[in-house]
Design a protein around this nucleic acid. Sequence first.
DNA 1: TCATAAAGTTCTCAATAAGTTCTCATATGT
DNA 2: ACATATGAGAACTTATTGAGAACTTTATGA
Lengths: 200, 200
Amino acid sequence: MKEHALLTNKEQKTYDFIEKYSKKNGKHPLLDEIAKGIGIKSKGVAHRYVKALEKAGKLKRISNKHRGMILQEKKSIFFKSLGKIAAGGPIEAITDQQRIELEYLFTNKRSFALKVTGDSMIDAGIHDGDWVIIEEGAKVYKSKVHVVLIDNQDVTLKFVEKINTSEIKLIPANKKFKETIYPFERISIQGHVVGQVRIY
Amino acid sequence: MKEHALLTNKEQKTYDFIEKYSKKNGKHPLLDEIAKGIGIKSKGVAHRYVKALEKAGKLKRISNKHRGMILQEKKSIFFKSLGKIAAGGPIEAITDQQRIELEYLFTNKRSFALKVTGDSMIDAGIHDGDWVIIEEGAKVYKSKVHVVLIDNQDVTLKFVEKINTSEIKLIPANKKFKETIYPFERISIQGHVVGQVRIY
DNA sequence: TCATAAAGTTCTCAATAAGTTCTCATATGT
DNA sequence: ACATATGAGAACTTATTGAGAACTTTATGA
């Protein structure tokens, strides 16, 4: 079997058929349906093509499962047409790393999103109306923005600093706001900001 | 049985029936009703399908309880566990509207992303290292941030203003940078910013 | 309360459908 | 000659589906 990622004629034809079938029927085809769809009789051969497509990264298979295949989206979640603007410009290539971070941001079960109200973190680039993605956890990180619950009632975004064994300092990123100090009992760290989304 | 997201024909049929029944009757069906609804006689088999749906995350079951099942909502891209922090806090409910906007942002074919270099737009909350999502188009919008190609070579983010029939003004959002004026011929508007993502 | 009916759960047996692996075969280009 | 691409089809394994018995738990009404 081949090692390269290029598809042969029939493999491409198989892929096209699977894509068309899936879009039309809302489910993936059977091997016999693929065989018929690409004009051959042997489901064994169809199976061979599907495995080749898996190897080429075009789809994932679930072994033995009926209709057990899932087309792989070109889903760099949205970094689609990058590099379009101009050659030579200050455009960074997209690395898989970035893509993975994004997927993590958007699918991690221990994270959720909050809509920001107010300007207390504006110097950290967090504006009124932004969405921040929060990773749950009570841990305090230096120079990270935290979600802090005060008196079991008010939620706020602030930098956090432990100042001694019983008190904690909340630091806004806006010179118009003051730093405040609370005893541990009144404070609960809900998580910290790992991402941010703004929709214009 | 293994765990995968794909449903078999009968599992899908079972799900559809439960959904339809629930909507119509305001309560979930009995196993015998499911069996009849999907055209089989054995409630044991119906039970097997319901368990499969639970495994696939399509519903939750309450063991032994009559009509003990709850359909799971379809999940939005990432605004998952919102409202978790505290009742009474300044947390906005997620509307479907927001979800749709996000999906649009991330999947629209006429948009792409750029990584920001430099601080020329920092007063607009666009920081070095941020990703901006660009919607393609040559149109100029007042008070929107545009991607501008200068001399077919340099790409920059700026506010844009037409000042007369032959010249255009590029306005940074940082007092340390100056506004600049270019003739139309040297400028090409590539698109404008519709979204922004930051990963901490 | 408590007996009883109703509903959920677990199980085996079975038949069929679909996926998997294999050999054999032909053609094609290097 | 040799590797690659392609196709047929047999033999085998696993998944899917269905029936129904036996059992446990829940709901209900006298």
